[in-house]
Design a protein around this nucleic acid. Structure first.
Length: 510
RNA sequence: GGCCCGUUCGUCUAGGGGUAAGGACAGAAGAGUUUCAUUCUUCAAACAGGGGUUCGAAUCCCUUACGGGCUACCA
């Protein structure tokens, strides 16, 4: 009985998507594509208190940027909508009633205060883990402990209640996880989780199971933090009679902070200077802005490749996998069990590799607006040349707008130390006087011709390249390092080079 | 605390009974280069500890330690 693969990425719109979330989406996406299945985006907004405006759009934009095409979702539509749980509200009640009627769930009238009281009392009695469970429910106010007529009365009076699952006592609940193998829990360790809240909304547990069932989800690929509540979910499938279509589970390891221990958080990014969100995000409440991988200068393909390898490995030594390669190679069985520390250095390396493999033309297109924003306005041919001159020297695409600024502007400062080391040598200043006048009469301003002039002057005064060229470079660019010198000079242009040489000589001769 | 999950170089990992335990990032040294970057060569670097099982364990089992997750009318 093999059903067509359908997986979902189901974030809560409680804030921006972080790295772990994007990776979960990615693994879902890759798995779907690998198996010719559907990738569904479902928004789980059953908690009205935690809703953050813009978060939903942020998720969609992030997936789009990263190149994960959603097959079914809010904007894409599909046969299993709506794809937002708050719009599915009425769907859940039916299943809750089914559970209630079958005696597999019950009403609970306890107030928050009473709940707290119970936990406090139990704690003081030395119970390590107070829970609303098989034992404690006997002493609480619910349809199991209260006489039927009182329950009826409370219901009729419209008293607030929640519906809890009636977890059986001492039963083994086991399920298979594609990544971890068989996982076993004892039902006595599980509490009677709330399925239906007093505000009329289902909790995650209920909504999740109902939606996965209704949307015919075949594989649940989610973070490891869900492993402990999976037995509840398994129980729910059983109680609802859906065991035969229960999806397979795959619980992904967490992404950890680079140093120390624990889950990677936004704080770590701020502290260590790297993004943890795919796109820029502005907190609507505080106005605080967070940098995204995109804006930091990452190419989406590089970002995806890097993320895919954080917790997954196809075996072998190849590490650069384009999207299609990733899809081809992906399998949940090769996802690792243990958490992976995020390494920004490696992320940078991936980006660099992708930049080098990107065509100058594509780079020009993605950079076009940035160039304009940076005040760089040149014809395309010139920009193409510029890009190819620096392509091996950048880690982030946005560096293109600043790294070779001296091609468009005069040097901001000179590397004085490097310059003076050579300038002070006997005969160097005079050699440059002659270089200046010779360059001045070059009619065809090409790298080859410039090189000829410099080389000639060098030999005439018996200087080595290392004595002349760095000086010339600093004169025209300010920096001691950079792209091939003569091509650089060609791009800067004759008039400008001559002027810069003159300015530099004046600057260093005083 | 309880429950569950995990543990190979600093980091991401390959390796799933017999390996010189492999690769990549970062690090070091060198080559090359006018310089910087790219590139190339080389080096350093790991099976958490203890018990078993076995002729033989990084690999299988147990256990300790450590790490993580969960323990809400949040997801």
């Amino acid at each position: 009985m093999s059903r067509p693969v359908r997986v979902r990425f189901a974030p809560s719109p409680t804030g921006p998507l972080h790295l772990g979330g994007v990776r979960t989406a990615l693994y879902n996406y890759l798995f779907a594509k690998k198996n010719g299945g559907k990738f569904i985006l479902r928004i789980e907004d059953t908690d009205q208190n935690r809703f953050v405006p813009g978060a939903e759009e942020y998720v969609m934009e992030s997936l789009k940027w990263a190149g994960m095409d959603v097959d079914e979702g809010i904007v894409e539509g599909g046969d299993f909508g709506p794809y937002k749980q708050s719009e599915r509200k009425d769907l859940y009640r039916k299943y809750v009633d089914q559970l209630l009627e079958a005696g597999l769930a019950y009403y609970s009238f306890d107030t928050t205060e009473e709940l707290d009281e119970m936990r406090e009392r139990l704690k003081s009695q030395g119970v390590p883990n107070p829970a609303y469970n098989q034992v404690t429910r006997q002493y609480m106010k619910n349809s199991l402990s209260l006489p039927a007529d009182e329950v009826q009365k409370r219901l009729e009076e419209g008293q607030a209640y929640v519906v809890r699952i009636k977890v059986p006592r001492n039963e083994e609940i086991r399920f298979h996880d594609i990544i971890r193998g068989w996982v076993v829990f004892n039902s006595s360790q599980i509490d009677d989780k709330v399925l239906f809240k007093s505000d009329g909304m289902p909790t995650y547990h209920m909504a999740n199971i109902v939606d996965d069932y209704l949307m015919q989800i075949t594989h649940v690929i989610r973070g490891e933090e869900w492993l402990p509540s999976t037995p509840i979910h398994v129980l729910l499938y059983k109680f609802l009679g859906w065991e035969d279509v229960m999806p397979e589970f795959a619980h992904l390891p967490l992404i950890l902070k680079p140093d120390g221990n624990g889950k990677l958080s936004k704080r770590d990014g701020d502290r260590l200077g790297f993004p943890v969100f795919p796109l820029n995000w502005t907190n609507p409440e505080t106005g605080e802005e967070s940098l995204g991988f995109k804006e930091r200068g990452f190419l989406p393909e590089a970002f995806m490749n890097m993320l895919a390898f954080l917790g997954w490995n196809p075996g072998g030594t190849q590490e650069i996998f384009k999207k299609d390669d990733l899809i081809q190679a992906f399998s949940l069985e090769r996802v690792s069990k243990s958490g992976a520390k995020f390494d920004f250095e490696k992320a940078k390396w991936f980006n660099q590799q992708y930049i080098k493999e990107t065509s100058v033309e594509d780079l020009l297109e993605t950079l076009r607006s940035s160039f304009i924003a940076a005040g760089i306005q040149k014809e395309d041919d010139f920009l193409r040349k510029y890009i190819s001159l620096f392509i091996d020297r950048v880690t982030f695409i946005k560096e293109f707008t600043s790294i070779g600024y001296y091609i468009f502007d005069k040097p901001k400062a000179y590397d004085e130390a490097q310059f003076n080391k050579r300038w002070t040598k006997e005969g160097i200043p005079s050699t440059f006087d002659s270089i200046y006048s010779k360059l001045n009469v070059v009619s065809d301003w090409t790298a080859t011709n410039i090189e000829a002039v410099i080389k000639e002057a060098m030999q005439a005064n018996s200087f080595k390249p290392g004595e002349i060229m760095p000086v010339f470079r600093i004169m025209i660019s300010g920096d001691a390092g950079g792209p091939p010198l003569f091509e650089l000079a060609e791009m800067i242009g004759k008039e400008e080079v001559l002027e810069r040489v003159k300015t530099a000589i004046k600057h260093f001769s005083k």
